[in-house]
């Protein structure tokens, strides 16, 4: 895949001249950055850089990446007419490779129609209900995961670029507050694990920065593709905190904050994680 090739090329490009300079902190920094290529931007590191080599290899190889099955579902749904309007996504949006390129880098966005934030799943379902007069896809259905992954995959390699200006600002603040608030019987905030301890082991798991750029992604533990909100529910549940509903305002605001933290990281969908 194109992205892998670029990452490797970047590593080689930085690695070779660095071999000549064998000492000094500048060398170490350069290697540290060069090592992860586009998966690291400044201090921001994709979950990819904390994953084991087998997991990374599975993500990199289009034929091994199990999430490709869901992309296929998304691709065929794109052409499928549904609902009372008798339309398919393709009827209005044409070739997804063109019309959807770069779209996912902006999500969640503020929606004038609803007066709140809308993530990509919600935007897709908005088209289902408003433009197709069709039933919304169910959360965590193969169709919604597949379509979201398919649309987001059209931005693969492009930097995440969500805006928190204007009306989005107040929702970003709510998301930030959620992120920093202790919760659950174990009384932990997201920050304790994903800011203070990124890179450290928590039992058998290496904590990452908890970035959202690879979602929806295939998780080996789930044996399927899952959404970012599913991951939020898991992280809440593990500390014996209440899980909130998929697509809840709280999680969509949290998604805005989490995604904004990763501005600049490339979209990786569909990623693979343990």
């Amino acid at each position: 895949m194109n992205t892998t090739f670029k990452a490797m090329a970047a590593a080689i490009a930085l690695g070779l001249p660095a071999l000549a300079l064998t000492t000094g902190p500048a060398f170490a920094d350069e290697m540290a950055e060069g090592k992860w290529g586009e998966y690291q931007v400044g201090d921001k590191r994709s979950g990819y850089t904390y994953a084991g080599p087998e997991t990374r290899a599975m993500q990199d190889d289009e034929f091994q990446n199990p999430a490709m099955l869901w992309l296929d579902t998304g691709m065929s749904e794109w052409e499928n007419a549904a609902g009372d309007a008798g339309k398919a996504c393709a009827d209005c949006h044409g070739d997804a490779e063109e019309s959807m390129a770069g779209v996912a880098t902006k999500y969640p966005v503020y929606s004038e129609e609803t007066g709140k934030m809308m993530n990509l799943e919600q935007r897709i379902n908005f088209c289902r209900t408003e433009n197709m007069q069709a039933e919304p896809y169910k959360w965590e259905s193969d169709e919604l995961l597949g379509m979201t992954a398919y649309v987001k995959n059209q931005s693969k390699g492009m930097p995440v670029d969500v805006s928190i200006d204007g009306p989005a600002k107040e929702f970003w603040e709510k998301g930030k507050e959620f992120y920093e608030t202790r919760r659950g019987q174990l009384d932990l905030a997201c920050t304790h694990c994903h800011v203070d301890n990124a890179g450290n082991l928590i039992r058998a798991e290496t904590l990452s920065q908890g970035q959202g750029n690879g979602f929806p992604l295939y998780r080996l533990k789930w044996q399927k593709v899952g959404s970012l909100h599913r991951r939020f529910r898991g992280c809440n549940n593990n500390i014996r905190a209440e899980k909130l509903p998929y697509g809840s305002d709280e999680y969509t605001n949290l998604e805005l904050y989490v995604t904004w933290r990763g501005n600049g990281l490339p979209i990786e969908t569909p990623a693979v994680r343990k």
Binding site: T181, R182, R183, G184, Q185, L186, D187, N236, N237, R240, A241, E242, K243
Partner: peptide, 13 residues
């Protein structure tokens, strides 16, 4: 404590 999951409220670990 805040937003403790059902079944664990008001119980120490």
């Amino acid at each position: 404590l805040h937003m403790v999951k059902d079944g664990f409220e008001d119980q120490p670990i």
